[in-house]
């Protein structure tokens, strides 16, 4: 009754997924700096290792060895809790993402997904709203008015864009008819990607994803020119590292989620007609999935070094009077379309 191999399999899968997530998040910091250098006609970091490939390691060590200062008037417990919650919410999201088709190993079917929740989409949505707490608690516990101001900015931005995100997801669920991420991916074989059914929904979702990850053009919570350093002004050492790193993990996870929901996830066109064995198909699927994710990561970085940031009132106006009505129209149109079919 107690399936020993099942537990071993899941343990290996969990460590692999966490390891790959942290690895890609670490190397997207390097990619960010290298691409920024490319866009600005510089060389970028090239001292640590060949082509600067060891730079993330050096950055991590630097964060680790720096003194973590807790301000005298800060609430010590909450000050540490804030970045930990941010990191936790970022890492928990990879549990429901299907990384590839089933593998056949030693006569067992191994699903490349930690757990296939029947409410996976709601789980992700809950984690998005849970991520607000890390920012709010950390900013408040710093006992600094600039931290508090940018905390209020960050959390009201996240809450506002959650609404439009939720509405665009409801329209997606209307077309797919399921909340399980795996079933959503399996429902888009070949070229039948959901982006073709929900182009407007995808546009709304990607804008909201940028806002939720606090990336340019929505990086108001941490704009140095107005608010010193944002909600993590008082942070230093590894606690600051957690906040900054959580942003890159969130970028990776939201790229994976966008790929799963709108771009077919691990589904690869034309592969079914080649008649390859299942394990080969699965490996191709995983590789293709990661190619799509890396393209989204490139998009995140590309936009950061191309566009200027919004003003705060422009951001709020876009969210409340632009995206939410658009998402409602999209939802109504999808509902009418589904009703007519």
């Amino acid at each position: 009754m107690f399936d020993f191999f099942f537990i071993i399999e899941k343990l290996i899968l969990i460590s692999a997924v966490l390891g790959i997530t942290l690895f890609i998040a670490a190397y997207s910091t390097l990619a960010e700096r290298k691409l920024a250098a490319f866009f600005q006609d510089r060389i970028g970091p090239d001292r640590a290792g060949p082509f600067g490939l060891l730079q993330p390691l050096a950055d991590g060590l630097k964060f680790l060895f720096k003194e973590a200062i807790i301000p005298a008037k800060a609430d010590r417990f909450l000050f540490v809790l804030g970045p930990s919650l941010s990191m936790l919410a970022a890492c928990m999201a990879c549990a429901v993402i299907p990384w590839g088709p089933d593998l056949m190993l030693f006569g067992r079917t191994v699903a490349l997904q930690i757990t296939d929740l029947s409410v996976g989409l709601l789980y992700l949505f809950g984690l998005v709203s849970f991520g607000v707490y890390g920012v709010m608690i950390g900013g408040w516990a710093s006992n600094n008015k600039y931290s508090l101001l940018s905390t209020i900015r960050a959390s009201s931005q996240m809450i506002s864009y959650e609404l439009a995100m939720g509405l665009s997801l409801i329209a997606l669920v209307l077309t797919t008819g399921t909340l399980s991420i795996r079933e959503i991916v399996l429902g888009q074989p070949g070229w039948h990607w959901n982006i073709l059914a929900q182009p407007l929904g995808f546009m709304i979702f990607i804008v909201c994803a940028f806002a939720e990850t606090n990336r340019v053009p929505f990086d108001l919570p941490e704009c140095e020119t107005e608010l010193v350093g944002g909600y993590h002004t008082e942070y230093s050492g590894m606690q600051l590292g957690f906040y900054l790193f959580a942003e890159y993990i969130n970028m990776f996870i939201s790229s994976a989620v966008m790929t799963c929901l709108y771009f077919g996830g691990f589904q690869m066109p034309f592969i079914a007609s080649l008649g390859l064995p299942q394990n080969v198909v699965a490996l191709f699927g995983v590789v293709f999935f990661f190619v799509k994710i890396l393209m989204f990561l490139f998009l995140f970085i590309w936009i950061r070094w191309t566009l200027p940031r919004f003003r705060y009132d422009q951001l709020m106006r876009l969210g409340w009077t632009g995206l939410i009505p658009l998402a409602i129209i999209n939802l109504l149109a999808t509902a009418v379309f589904q009703l007519c079919n």
Binding site: V119, F125, S129, F130, E162
Partner: peptide, 11 residues
């Protein structure tokens, strides 16, 4: 459970 988390913890 998911709705409970989204409504109470999230909002």
């Amino acid at each position: 459970c998911a709705v409970h988390i989204v409504v109470y913890a999230g909002a």
